[in-house]
Write a protein that binds this DNA or RNA. Sequence first.
RNA 1: GUCCGGAUAGUGUAGUGGCCUAGCAUGGAGCCCUGUCGAGGCUCCGCCCCGGGUUCAAAUCCCGGUCCGGGCGCCA
Length: 434
Amino acid sequence: MTIMRTHYASGIMPEMDGDTVTVAGWVHEIRDLGGICFLVLRDREGFIQVTMVKKKTDPDLFDMGRRLNRESVVLVTGVVKEAKQAPNGYEIIPQSVDMLSEAESPLPMDVTEKVGADIDTRLDSRFIDLRRRTTLAVFAIRNHALKTVRDFLASEGFIEIHTPKVVAAATEGGTALFPITYFNREAFLNQSPQLYKQIMMSAGFDRVSEIGAIFRAEEHDTLRHLNEATSIDIEASFMDHSDVMEILERLVHDVYVGVSRQCVPQLEALGVELAVPELPFRRLTYDDALEIAHQQGHEIEWGDDFGTVAERAVGSAVGEHYFITDWPLHIKPYYTRPREDDSRYSKSFDLMHPRMELASGSQRVHSHSLLCQRIVACGLDPDGFDFYLKAFRYGMPPHAGWGLGAERLVMTMLGVENIRDVVLFPRDRKRLSP
RNA sequence: GUCCGGAUAGUGUAGUGGCCUAGCAUGGAGCCCUGUCGAGGCUCCGCCCCGGGUUCAAAUCCCGGUCCGGGCGCCA
C-alpha cells in the first residue's frame, strides 16, 4: 500500500474514463441506498463521488465502505467512470478502500454545513471547522490576497524584511503591551514594526516591507479587534505621505483584482460578488470628515478622534474606500511629521473602508532634534529610545510609510462580520487556545 | 474599563411557573431501499451550566458563581 494520491478530487475529469486513480481524503458523507452506496470523499480541492454497486463490488469492500465513519481518512484506488447521473459527470468505481485513520463519533460539529455552529464551538474545534468548504474558502482567499500583496510590493521595489517581535522596554506609547520575561529582563511583544522599519531607512534599504504579527494587550471585545493580528507594513525613503498613499490605494486595488480573478470558486462558495474599488480613492481632510460627521448629527470637537458611530456615519456617507488626511498632530504619534505651513496638522492619513479603518500612515519626522522634541511633547522619555534615535543622527533620509491590517483588508473585502473568521487561531481577550 | 445579553441532546434551536415524561432539525445505532447528490421511509438513542432560595409546583422567577456573546470606551 502506498500513501500517495495520484490526483486531488478536482483533478479528476470525465475524459479520464477508464483510468485507474488513487484519491485520498476525508469521508464527507455516505449515502447508502441498499443496492448502491455512494461515498463522498473530500480533500483540499473538492469532492469526488465513490460509487459501490452491491452486485459488482467485492462484498467485504462494500460492507466496509458503507460502515465508514464520517470524517475518517481514507485512501481510495479505483477506476474513473464517466456517468451522467454522477455529480460533475464522473465517479470512481473503487478497487480498494484503505482506512488510514478512523474518526470518532459523534463529531464536535457538523462539517457538511447543514447545521450551524457558534463561533466559539467552531474555534474550539477549529481543525474540523477548517474542513468546511466556506471556512476553507476564506483562507484560500486570504492566501491569494497576501500573495498579491507580496507580488505587488516586490514589483514596486520593496525589500521584504523581518523585524524583532520581542522588544525591549522602549515603546511607542499608546497601546498596552504584553510583558514577557526575556531571561532575567523585562521585555514585550512588539505592537508594530514601526521603529525598526524606520531604522531600515537609515540603513539605506530605501523601500522595505513586512507582513508580520503584531500584539496589542488592549482588553477590547469587538468584532474587529484581536490581540494578535497581522500587519502589512511599508516604509519608503524620499517619499512623502501622498506618495505612499498612492502605493497603498494601488495595492488595495490590486488585491481586489487578484482575488476576483484567482478565487472565483471560493467567492462563489461564500456568495460574494466582489466589486473592485475604483482608483483613485477619495481624499477627505480631517476637517472635511469632521464636517460630514457634523452634518450626520455627530458632535465631535476639533482635535478629537472619531468614535465608532461617527466613523461609520462618515463611512456610509462616502460609501467606498477613502482616505482621511491631515489629522490634528496631537492625536497622531510622535514620529508623525507636522505640516510645514500649520503645525496643528500632520502629514498623515488613515485609509478607511466604510465599515472601519484599514490602514494608517504618514510622512515621518526625520530630523533628530525635532523627533526628540516630539517624543518629549508626547510625554515619553527619549532615554528609552536610544537605539531608535541613534539611527537619526548619522544620515536619515526623509521617509514615509503605513501599516495595513491584513485581517481587516480580507474581512471588509469579503463582507465577513467577525475578524475571528479570517484568522486560523485567533487570539482575543478570552481565547488563548487552540 | 463599562453597559447589555445569553447558557436546553455531539451540533443548531423551540419552550418565560403546572399542558414538559422538554418539541424540532441535524447527528448516532439499526432495518428497508440500485442513481443518491441537504437522498427517502420506519424504529430506537441522547439535553434543561453549577450552587442556594421562593413556591403546593421551577428549564421557566430571585440571589450568588462559572463560562460565553455583543455594544461603547480604549486601540499612536
